[in-house]
Design a binder for these strands. Structure first.
Length: 535
DNA sequence: GGAAGCGACTCAGAAACATGTAC
DNA sequence: TGTACATGTTTCTGAGTCGCTTC
């Protein structure tokens, strides 16, 4: 049938081409042109990509630099500074205790940070509100401090609406206007987004300074809502090669420092005010510096493959060691290897969310079940890991591991460390003895990689269609995600999407039901009209 | 020797943005 | 053909790991 339809359409078109041009026909021609334009764009893009691939720096075919030296030439424009604050229009007001209140520029800017987040869960959290209000008050003028004393009396709704409308307006711009904006962004990318590294043009990963705003820590972060200050050139250290063109600071400003350190890979850095830690401008993952490091990482995992059986035999033997530290080390390593847990460095209390990894597990994070759902020696894990993502797993372990865990937990409080004789330094020092360069994280890389490889082998067939192979690939990838406990929160639109799908399903069901009824009716009618003699 | 702190880097989730598809 | 929504990709930046230095 589809073939017939195509044929018919073709014939109709032929007929019409012999007729005079009608408005409908003009529309068709226009759409054809639009289609061609789209196609041309695609071809152009493909050609550009091909050209880029041809020009790609084949650094892996070159000789490696001596140990520790990352480059001999590094030239760039410095970071792109995000635009300065633009004051609100006069008709957009902040209200305190029901009355409009004109804020000073700095106070207003910080108010907009909060106003923009009004739709977000963050602003309902007490810690966020308190941190924000405390930091906001610090930046207020003394007059403002006298008036604004209670966050509950602050009304940001008009400011919030202003930004929502602004974002809607941006979405509603014409194609041409959007194109113009894109060209402007491309120009900035072209100017600041690349550097020259050893004679090759390399893409920078993050060439813009982070804009000021409110700190959005993950999970129950004690610092959420604090004011993230604007980065100025005076905060920035530039790193480049001595003989290169040193980037100019924006007019009227100067850099904090310019250094020429070729043992590091960063182009610029600054200290952020929330955690007092360093932030860097570095290259894109497609660059030589990142690619080479990635390569090394997988080579290290490959080397682990050769010795992993021996290491496994050793930690199994250590489960029976007379030394408590060795036993703890052996059980922790078993978890890292079997469950792909992270190492678990110690963290400063009160500075970050309370999350743990293997070495920092506490007694309260596991439950022991001698028998559970027909399985023996089950350990139930329940803790918050990196990014406050919950790790929940019930694992059947070996008898010796189970007995050791019981021993480690004996006479301890829930908030005591499970592995009290162990930390990541002790563990990594031991691993270093087993294999040069081996650390806890290599097990995660190794187990993730080998899982992908094995799954691909088990799920794919060389005769499969591309779609079939893609499906198998996605399934293999999912197995790795499950192993590594990679998760995403459900999107805000999830409920609505599900509702839409359900509506569609219901409509189809009804259609089927109606069709069935019609069929039944037609059959009955047919029965009635049948000639009794014909039977 | 080991604790603390810092520096440099990778990892990873959220959000923004781009593209594809169904209606 | 336009729109709304779904899906895929990229950007952003917070959260880890781990080596090194200092005390």
């Amino acid at each position: 049938k589809p073939k017939e339809e195509t044929k018919e359409k073709g014939e109709n078109n032929k007929k019409k081409s012999e007729e005079e041009e009608t408005p409908g026909k003009k529309r068709k021609r226009k759409s054809k042109e639009a289609g061609e334009e789209k196609n041309n764009k695609k071809v152009k893009k493909e050609k550009e990509e091909e050209k880029e691939a041809e020009n790609k720096w084949k650094w892996w075919e070159e000789e490696k630099k001596e140990n520790g030296i990352k480059w001999t030439q590094l030239e760039h424009r410095g970071p792109y500074f995000v635009p300065l604050y633009e004051p609100l229009p006069d008709d957009v007001q902040f209200y305190y205790d029901g009355k409009p209140l004109k804020l000073s520029l700095a106070t207003e800017e910080i108010a907009t940070f909060y106003a923009k987040m009004l739709d977000h869960d963050y602003t309902t959290k007490e810690i966020f509100q308190n941190n924000f209000f405390k930091d906001w008050r610090k930046e207020m003028t003394s007059e403002e401090q006298e008036i604004i004393k209670d966050l509950n009396k602050c009304d940001f709704k008009e400011i919030h609406k202003y930004f929502v409308d602004k974002s809607e307006a941006r979405k509603a711009l014409s194609k041409e206007e959007k194109q113009k904006l894109k060209e402007e962004a491309d120009k900035i990318q072209e100017e600041y987004g690349y550097c020259i590294l050893d004679g090759h043009r390399e893409k920078i990963g993050n060439f813009k300074t982070e804009p000021p705003g409110l700190f959005r820590g993950r999970g129950d972060h004690p610092k959420m809502g604090m004011l993230k200050k604007r980065i100025m050139p005076e905060d920035v250290i530039i790193n480049c090669s001595k003989d290169s063109k040193i980037p100019e600071p924006p007019q009227g400003h100067k850099w904090k420092e310019v250094r020429f350190d070729n043992t590091v890979t960063w182009l610029a850095s600054w200290t952020e005010n929330i955690q007092n830690s360093l932030k860097y401008i570095m290259l894109n993952p497609s660059s030589k510096l990142k690619g080479e490091k990635d390569w090394q990482k997988y080579e290290l995992a490959r080397r682990l493959k050769d010795v992993v059986d021996k290491i496994r035999a050793q930690y199994r033997a250590d489960w029976k060691s007379k030394e408590m530290q060795k036993r703890q080390r052996a059980v922790a390593l078993y978890f890292i290897d079997k469950l792909a847990l992270r190492a678990g460095n110690e963290k400063e209390e009160g500075e970050t969310a309370d999350t743990v990894g293997c070495c920092s597990l506490r007694v309260e994070h596991i439950k022991l079940h001698p028998d559970l759902d027909g399985k023996k020696y089950v350990v139930e894990f329940d803790f918050l890991g990196k990014d406050s993502i919950r790790y929940y797993n019930k694992v059947s372990v070996e008898k010796l591991v189970f007995k050791n865990l019981r021993l480690f937990m004996k006479n301890k409080d829930p908030d005591d460390d499970l592995f009290d004789r162990l930390n990541t330094q002790v563990l990594n020092k031991h691993l270093q003895h087993l294999m040069d360069g081996l650390t806890a994280k290599v097990f995660r890389t190794y187990n993730a990689s080998i899982t992908l490889q094995e799954q691909l082998k088990a799920l794919t067939n060389s005769e499969d269609s591309v779609a079939g192979k893609l499906l198998s690939y996605n399934r293999a990838n999912r197995a790795v995600a499950i192993l590594c406990n990679h998760q995403r929160s459900t999107p805000k639109t999830f409920e609505k999407s599900m509702q839409n799908l359900q509506t569609k399903i219901d409509a189809k069901k009804q259609q089927v039901e109606e069709a069935k009824q019609e069929l039944k009716k037609a059959e009955d009618e047919f029965e009635d009209t049948k000639d009794p003699k014909a039977e």
